[in-house]
């Protein structure tokens, strides 16, 4: 059974429909990508999965309907959401931000292991433990947001545009981190406008356009698809 499953999900803001009949599955241990242009409804979809938006249809995480539980409970149960805005705590240090990620966990030994893992994954964060989040560069903030999400010991990690606005060399760092997480067997739902990045990491992908899933398949299938190549990947 998929760990995360969307069936015929509709979301609307007043008269405009943001998502229409979206169905999507994520199996344990998979990296699933969702690509599509700005305004296609990608963030709306993640907000709905994380319990922040009302929807019709069905979204289940680990067999539980998301609308019947709370966003806080979902985080506790391992569904962790790393937003596009990052939503860091600006006046907390790097370390305090990471501590917040683990605030609901009581096993101190396991939390310490998470700290070691995150600091090892992002040595830049280790060097800047006592620096306030607001004073860091965009790339460092993205690493911190990812680190904070990992501190929650996720079973499924949802990433919204982790490469947005970052320099290529920083994207490489994020890439490397994702590869390590993949090796660890973490399940990831990766939402990206940057199709090249998504195609590199995801095993399966969905194309979301104007609120509907227009196409889905493995990374290889989508890479060879004419429409995807012309509209999203370009001639690089």
């Amino acid at each position: 059974m998929p760990v995360l499953q969307l069936e015929d999900v509709d979301v609307s803001y007043g008269k405009t429909q943001a998502l229409r009949n979206v169905s999507l599955e994520v199996e344990e241990g998979e990296i699933v990508g969702v690509i599509g242009p700005n305004g296609a409804g990608k963030t709306t979809m993640l907000d709905s999965i994380a319990g922040y938006k009302e929807y019709s249809g069905s979204i289940t995480y680990d067999g539980t309907e998301v609308s019947e539980t709370s966003s806080g409970k979902l985080v506790n149960d391992g569904l962790v959401y790393c937003t596009e805005d990052r939503d860091l705590f600006p006046y907390f240090t790097v370390h305090e931000n990471l501590q917040m990620g683990a605030q609901f966990r009581s096993d101190d030994g396991a939390v310490q292991e998470s700290f070691d893992f995150v600091y090892d994954l992002f040595p830049r964060l280790d060097e800047r433990r006592d620096q306030e989040a607001q004073t860091m560069s965009g790339g460092e903030q993205q690493m911190l947001a990812l680190g904070r999400a990992l501190m929650s010991d996720p079973d499924v990690l949802m990433l919204d545009e982790p490469t947005l606005g970052l320099a290529p060399v920083i994207i490489d760092d994020i890439s490397e981190a994702l590869e390590r997480l993949q090796d660890e067997g973490l399940t990831i739902l990766l939402v990206e406008q940057n199709s090249t990045f998504a195609l590199r990491h995801a095993e399966r992908l969905y194309l979301l356009e104007q609120g509907s899933i227009e196409l889905s398949g493995t990374a290889d299938e989508l890479r060879d698809d004419d429409y995807i190549r012309d509209a999203y990947v370009g001639v690089t």
Binding site: G72, L88, F89, P90, F92
Partner: peptide, 22 residues
């Protein structure tokens, strides 16, 4: 953790929600 969540909420309510704060 409990007290830090109060400060965290005052900085970013959304951030606090994302880290499971009630």
């Amino acid at each position: 953790d409990d007290g830090r969540s109060i400060l965290a909420t005052s900085m970013s309510e959304r951030g606090a929600q994302l880290t499971g704060v009630n």
